[in-house]
Simulated assay, not measured.
Amino acid sequence: MGKEQQPPAYGGQALVEGVMFGGKNHTVAAIRRKDDTIDYFHLPKEKNSVRMKLKKIPFVRGIVALIESAGVGSRHLTFSSERYDVMPGEEIEKEEETSKLAMVLGVAAVGVLSLLFGKFVFTLIPVFLAQALQFVAPGKTAQILLESLFKLILLLTYVSLISMTPLIKRVFQYHGAEHKVINAYENNLPMTVENVQAQSRLHFRCGSSFMLFTVIVGMFVYFLVPTDPFWLRIVNRILLIPVVLGISFEVLQLTNSLRNVPVLKYLGYPGLWLQLLTTKDPDDKQVEVAIASFERLLEIEEHGAVAMEVVTKSDSETETETVPVT
């Protein structure tokens, strides 16, 4: 039963007017086009022996998985942002691509806040704020607690502000649809709009929970290293980024494995509370897109992309496929 509730092969990501789901060998995105049709984008997962070995090593596997998901997710985001508001067959002018790219980066920041530049900003700004208030909160313990508080405030403020924009609101609705589909699947329910809508929009394995865990885990890790002098504190925070990410990923996996254990399930609740901000209840049409994406993934995982006759064309050409939308 535990395996049915936690199928390790399936995860997802909200897109612009769509949802991407990933399995063992493939990732598939489905988006709602301007003419109300559903369009698909398929990417096979690249096989790399070194990466596969690294993904089996605890604390290292999380960093590898995050980098991998960020790369794959950005390609799906590009696909969705370039097509969702364009009629099938229309070409996107080259001069429009810059503004499209800016939008993609804004949406991608929600999912990869803890990576690359975003992670540096998220890590270092609280350090400088805490240092500026050292006269109020002197000492290592007080500084680390204050730093962690600023980091939490920064995270909540960022998510709250972007959730006010119409585009991100809809992305968060698709985020909720993604979770509802996964919950329906893990509960062995038929993939109908009614069944999916009845599910929770929260999930223990969500990346939003991971972002919150980086704040909590970071606080405990920082107690193990010096905070003075200030330059050493900055160096420590930068060098510890992969350590915090790796441990946070393991904590995320642990809370997911304990979600049905009395009392211990509450360890994952802080992450679920954050998801109240990063997910919204989807409408039926958004759930339809999420279901279409997930069912297409299952079909491709079972039969293969060639058998499904899914053909992805580059640039402004429209993806074509012979399987009708269900």
Rank of each mutant, 00 (worst) to 15 (best):
L245R: 00
I162N: 09
L277I: 08
F150Y: 01
L297T: 09
A184I: 06
T322R: 10
T255L: 05
F135R: 05
L297Y: 03
E194A: 06
A132N: 09
M87E: 09
L272K: 08
H42P: 02
P270V: 10
Q197N: 14
P8N: 14
R205C: 02
Y158M: 08
A9W: 09
V325I: 11
V181L: 00
L240M: 12
K56E: 10
P126Y: 03
E68I: 06
T141D: 03
V127D: 04
D315E: 12
I291E: 07
Y174F: 15
K169I: 06
P282D: 09
V287E: 05
P282C: 12
V225G: 03
M308E: 13
G139T: 08
Q199S: 09
A130L: 01
S74D: 03
V263F: 11
S209Y: 05
V311A: 01
G271M: 02
V325S: 11
P324G: 08
H26N: 06
L43C: 07
Q286P: 07
L258G: 05
M20P: 01
K280F: 14
P166C: 05
P226E: 10
G18H: 00
A292Y: 00
A305F: 09
G22C: 14
D228L: 13
P226N: 00
P324M: 03
V104Q: 10
W231T: 08
E321L: 14
N48P: 09
E178F: 01
L101S: 12
L267T: 02
V311I: 14
S99P: 10
L101V: 04
L113G: 05
E147C: 08
M308Y: 04
L212K: 00
G11Q: 07
R83I: 06
G246C: 04
P282Q: 04
R75C: 09
A132L: 10
L189A: 02
V121T: 09
